[in-house]
Design a protein around this nucleic acid. Structure first.
Length: 831
DNA sequence: AGCACGCCGACT
DNA sequence: GTCGGCGTGCTC
């Protein structure tokens, strides 16, 4: 028996870990004997990776089979005694990596807040046993002198001082001469928030002692003042337990206490300093507002139907028109789920997650509710993560990346505005869709999913029609508010008959004026930021373009510069035409800045605000702007698609859509769907309570059927047309799309690589399943030429096999020496 | 990704 | 000859 136990312990353990690098496999490390049993799936460990780097890894699996081809390195350190990553999450990471064709490390990188990750930095310091300074060159002596001033220097700092690009040789030489040593500095990034507090020595909680103290301090009025101030906040006699908790030192300082007097009192043992770790989030008590929420008749009916559908279906699509009061229904559902003891995740697109909704939910759910948002600091994210693990947060409201949080017992996931494209991550891998990931998590944890939208995606509606999802519809606005009246303005006709001023039709101006007189607010929607999308020479028609991308440069009035919206390049506004030297440069087209300017000229007395990426960059700007609209400080708000996302303003009764055609004619099979969604959503901002709102759409062609579907809010009609088109051309939901983006600095190489790839894929998959290569709308970005190959697969085809084949072919093409320097990026379920 | 290592041209 | 540049391949 004893022997067997010993024998068990003798077996060496190995851990397969996920490393934060884009390498498509796990790495095996050896578990040191003293860590045996503590290293389990989900704990973070520190390992050496490569010759120099030290990184944080997450253990995916522990086993006993030593790797055959190499000697595994030892795990250096364990960071957690309780796994910070759940086994469910590790499964999910693997699922995402496989489904979206990326590496588990890339998934982990976006999943873990960077505060939970540790990377080492290589640093150098003087060798204390350095003996032969005569060996050094003059240059090296200077560096040693510099190093003496600091305890250590990073490679970067050293390179900057030595003014060399490549410090490697320098370091190697100095190490060879035994002048310096290289070491790895490991930094824990997360730091708990600490407050310095002060409390009265418990000796003075006695009446007698305290009176005596006051008597003593009569001689030193400054010190007496400190004591009296303290007692004002903390009545130490009456409530000694409050004294134990002390008072924040900063509170005393603010009350005008000097550091010195307090310091003396501490030295004399009257007061004592101590520190406590506090949460970055204030604890909020629920105010029991939930009980007061009364669902209207139609809301109650929808609520009952949703519950009933959940009896049979795991996913329900909730189609509630704008202003129908979906939030109240969500709240009731969330309460129900929490009561049953399970966790809840409420997903919202980035821009719809405003303080309004958070404050409202906090009033109801108090400190059970955690918020996860991209504008949170890293430390805050770590605290949210830890609070979910500890069980404090049972309800999270958050954006796309919240699907990666360590839930283990989800009962309900709400995906609000489920049609929103921002749920799909496009740029760095993992290129995941949060809605689909939510569905997968729900399935793994047996949770229910509610997809909510006023304009459901065609896919979701299709699944509902097919019976895969349940469907609940709410077609009445809350409190009998009416849907806005929508009018089309033929801008071509208006231009011809001079019924136009700047970019504004007579009708739009008239209504804006009327609204100003009535002291009601208006929103103007133009999905293009900047002043004008391009600058053109009147003499030779030259257009300002980006030198590293294939697009025109947008003129930004604010900053007087031209900017590329693809690569971020900026240049000062040219005074003359770069082609012919003419001074006649005119701004072409309308961006939000120009609309703002024209409005201000036409209505000088009106307060005009602008909401786009440029005015909401800073952490608070967005909230400030919303606040101003709410309190009526802005009469007309001009904005990009930001103004379409779930903003609730009481006083808005007019919405103007500046140019509807851009959206409708966008070259994408989803253009109609998107145009419908965007226009319907922004129209929904008009007239929420008792006044019926008005919407004016400016277009070159008022006869387009899509505009009439929008006017009549005829979603079913749009759906019927779209779905038959999708079926005819085998687009989603009848197929799956995988886009392969091929990039290279030389156009020809990019094209050849893409062509060869397409050819190889066609051979096996068949010609109809492979489209392209085709140059995208913008053919060149950051000097790289782009070609796209699209794979269209029927739903019946097994994805695993195809993806393995794709990866194989991609590797083949990338390894060919004529395509050196090319990159091929797969995007599963693109678009 | 990030970094060691190797090969190559420009200069003392 | 040496220094510094960049291209390549590996990381348990």
């Amino acid at each position: 028996m004893l022997f067997e136990e010993n024998y068990q312990e003798e077996v060496t353990q190995f851990a397969d870990v996920i490393l934060p690098v884009p390498v498509p496999r796990l790495f095996t490390y050896r578990v040191p004997r003293e860590f045996a049993g503590i290293v389990t799936a989900g704990v973070r460990v520190i390992v050496q990776f490569g010759k120099t780097k030290v990184v944080t890894a997450v253990v995916a699996k522990v086993h006993n089979s030593p790797p055959k081809e190499y000697q595994a390195k030892y795990i250096l350190e364990i960071l957690d005694d309780v796994p910070l990553v759940t086994t469910q999450q590790i499964d999910l990471f693997h699922w995402i990596a496989e489904y979206y064709m990326c590496c588990a490390g890339e998934v982990m990188n976006v999943a873990l807040p960077s505060g939970l990750k540790i990377t080492s930095q290589s640093k150098v310091q003087l060798n204390p046993e350095f003996e032969y300074p005569e060996l050094l060159t003059e240059r090296e002596k200077e560096i040693i002198e510099e190093l003496k001033k600091h305890s250590s220097l990073s490679y970067d700092e050293l390179a900057r001082f030595a003014e060399v690009k490549n410090v490697y040789h320098l370091i190697k030489s100095l190490v060879g001469k035994r002048a310096i040593i290289v070491f790895e500095e490991v930094k824990e990034k997360y730091s708990p928030k600490i407050v310095r507090k002060v409390r009265l020595n418990s000796f003075y909680e006695e009446t007698g002692n305290l009176t005596a103290l006051i008597g003593e301090l009569e001689k030193t009025p400054k010190q007496l003042e400190v004591l009296l101030q303290y007692l004002r906040y903390v009545p130490a006699l009456r409530t000694p337990e409050l004294n134990r908790k002390g008072l924040e030192k900063s509170t005393l300082m603010k009350a005008g206490i000097s550091e010195g007097s307090l310091g003396t009192l501490v030295k004399n043992g009257v007061f004592e300093y101590f520190e406590v770790i506090i949460s970055r989030f204030a604890d909020l008590e629920p105010t029991q507002e939930a009980a007061s929420i009364q669902l209207s008749g139609p809301q109650q009916k929808a609520f009952d139907e949703i519950l009933q559908q959940f009896q049979q279906k795991d996913t329900v699509l909730f189609h509630g028109i704008t202003g129908s009061g979906k939030t109240e229904i969500y709240i009731k559902l969330i309460e129900l789920a929490l009561e049953s003891g399970s966790q809840v995740l409420y997903l919202l697109p980035e821009i719809a997650l405003t303080t309004q909704i958070v404050v409202r939910l906090q009033k109801i759910f108090g400190d059970k509710l955690g918020v996860y948002h991209s504008k949170f600091s890293d430390n805050e994210r770590v605290e949210v993560w830890k609070n979910i693990i500890s069980g404090k947060y049972q309800f999270i409201i958050g954006v796309r990346s919240s699907v990666f949080l360590p839930f283990n017992n989800l009962g309900l996931i709400i995906v609000d505005e489920e049609h929103e494209t921002s749920y799909k991550q496009y740029d760095p891998a993992p290129r995941y869709h949060a809605k689909d990931v939510a569905l997968v998590i729900a399935q793994k944890q047996s949770a229910k999913v509610l997809l909510g939208s006023a304009t459901p995606s065609i896919e979701s509606y299709f699944h509902a029609n097919q019976g895969r999802f349940g469907l609940v519809t709410l077609k009445e606005r809350f409190g009998n508010a009416q849907l806005p009246e929508i009018e089309l303005v033929d801008i071509k006709y208006a231009r011809k008959h001079r019924l136009i001023k700047g970019g504004f039709s007579g009708l739009l101006l008239e209504q804006l004026k009327l609204n100003l007189e009535k002291k009601e607010q208006s929103i103007l929607f133009q999905n293009r930021r900047g002043y004008s999308p391009y600058l053109q020479c009147e003499d030779c028609d030259w257009i300002s373009t980006c030198h590293q991308c294939d697009v025109s440069l947008t003129y930004h009035y604010n900053g007087q510069e031209l900017r590329c919206h693809y690569c971020g390049h900026r240049e000062p506004l040219p005074r003359t035409c770069a082609a012919c030297g003419s001074h006649k440069l005119k701004t072409m087209g309308y961006g939000t800045e120009k609309i703002e300017e024209e409005l201000q000229q036409i209505f000088p007395e009106a307060k005009v605000g602008r909401m786009d990426l440029d005015t909401t960059r800073s952490k608070t700007a967005f909230q400030t702007l919303i606040g101003e609209v709410e309190k009526g400080a802005i009469d007309i708000l001009v904005g990009t698609q930001m103004v379409t996302k779930g903003l609730d303003f009481e006083g808005v009764s007019l919405v103007g859509i500046f140019d509807a055609d851009k959206m409708i004619h966008f070259p994408d099979f989803r253009a109609s769907e998107r145009a419908f969604q965007m226009i319907t959503q922004v129209a929904g901002r008009a007239g929420r309570r008792d006044t019926r709102g008005k919407v004016i759409i400016q277009t070159n062609n008022p006869n387009q059927p899509i505009l009439h579907q929008i006017i009549h809010n005829d979603y079913e009609n749009l759906y019927r047309e779209e779905i038959s088109e999708r079926e005819a051309f085998m687009y989603p939901p009848f197929s799956r799309l995988i886009k392969l983006t091929v990039k290279h600095f030389e156009q020809e190489i990019a094209h050849n690589a893409a062509s060869l790839l397409a050819l190889k894929l066609r051979e096996k998959l068949g010609a109809p399943r492979v489209l392209g290569p085709e140059a995208p709308l913008v053919e060149r970005v950051r000097n790289q030429f782009i070609f796209e190959v699209m794979i269209k697969l029927e739903k019946t085809i097994g994805l695993k096999g195809v993806k393995a084949f794709l990866s194989e072919q991609i590797q083949d093409v990338l390894l060919m020496k004529e395509f050196k320097g090319a990159s091929i990026i797969p995007d599963v379920d693109c678009g």
